[in-house]
């Protein structure tokens, strides 16, 4: 049996609905239609009344989920695209993220964000929002890079007592396949060594893990062994695993697909510099998308985001320093 990243998300939701009667899913076109990407295919038939079509109201979708969580439900909200979560931003960062801290009542909701770029999607169907949400206290931000994590992190997210922003990458939906799902993975908050190495560390998450691995494979031909760390969760950050890797390699490149100003890559580098300056043999570097909206045409799009080629170029500079 082989399973794609998207199918893993569907299977995780199936399993969450099966295991826990408190779970329901809410989003646009997710019922009988099965969702814009089919992440809820057949679920409304398998779990009648628990996979519900919503109006195009991201603010109210999230507000509704928060209210439902207060009353003991475990809602999963599907945003049709991560980009549209900006309309629900207020409920996410001001209502969901503050609820527990203000009232002592936990807010166990999961908001799924189909994230990241695919060719031809343009400025409003390609965004990566993890850095924005990570900025706010009270949210957990997960960024699965593998089929296994898409499945297990989503199931773990549903079980968590806190609001989770689940950034699933659309580029991985169909490309990424696994033969079978392992019975368990690392817990939320733990990073993973996706590829061991000793000459430099690349810290990446989501689709950028795969670009980084391809870059590492290319540099291997020149005799470099690049370690790739898959963050898995960008909040909390597993600083310990990252520092341990930098201790082995002495060099750090952090790669993210979101915009360059601030964000996850800046946060990782600031932590490594603060806590592991003595471990570094070269100034730590980061690579993000360009500082423009995300272009539509594939020629422009490929040049806008980090790719294996641009990661290789960046690593060569770092290795020569």
């Amino acid at each position: 049996m082989s399973l794609t990243y998207l199918e893993a998300i569907r299977e995780a939701q199936y399993e969450a609905l099966r295991r826990d009667p408190r779970v329901f899913i809410y989003g646009q076109d997710i019922g009988e239609f099965g969702g814009a990407f089919k992440a809820t295919k057949r679920l409304s038939a398998e779990f009648p009344g628990r996979v519900l079509d919503s109006p195009i109201s991201e603010d109210a979708m999230v507000g509704m989920a928060i209210g439902a969580a207060v009353e003991g439900s475990r809602p999963i909200v599907e945003m049709q695209f991560a980009d549209f979560s900006s309309v629900g931003f207020n409920q996410i960062v001001n209502q969901a993220a503050t609820l527990y801290w203000r009232t002592n009542v936990p807010c166990p909701i999961v908001i799924r964000l189909p994230s990241g770029g695919t060719p031809g999607s343009g400025p409003f169907h390609s965004q990566s929002m993890e850095s924005i949400y990570a900025h706010y206290p009270g949210l957990v931000i997960l960024t699965p890079a593998t089929v296994e994590d898409a499945y297990h992190l989503l199931l773990d997210a549903v079980e968590l007592e806190d609001p989770v922003i689940f950034c699933e990458h659309k580029f991985l939906y169909y490309h990424l396949k696994a033969d079978a799902l392992p019975t368990s993975t690392l817990p939320i908050g733990k990073a993973r060594i996706a590829r061991p190495g000793r000459h430099a560390t690349v810290v990446a998450y989501s689709a950028m893990v795969h670009e980084s691995i391809r870059a590492a494979e290319e540099l291997q031909q020149d005799g470099y062994q690049i370690e790739v760390v898959d963050m898995r969760s960008v909040k909390p950050i597993d600083t310990g695993t990252i520092l341990a890797s930098v201790a082995r390699t002495g060099r750090l490149l952090c790669v993210g697909e979101s915009f360059p100003w601030g964000g996850v890559t800046a946060e990782v580098i600031s932590r490594v510099v603060a806590d592991g300056f003595h471990l570094l043999d070269a100034p730590p570097q980061r690579l993000n998308s360009k500082d423009t909206p995300i272009p539509y045409h594939p020629n422009l799009w490929r040049a806008h985001r980090p790719t294996a080629a641009s990661i290789v170029a960046e690593l060569r500079k770092l290795l020569k320093f």
């Binding site: 009344g49 109201s57 603010d59 109210a60 979708m61 507000g63 989920a65 969580a69």
Partner: peptide
């Protein structure tokens, strides 16, 4: 408004 709606939705689902 939507939070109250959600509280009612949850109870109905349960």
């Amino acid at each position: 408004v939507s939070v109250v709606a959600g509280m009612l939705m949850s109870r109905r689902l349960q």
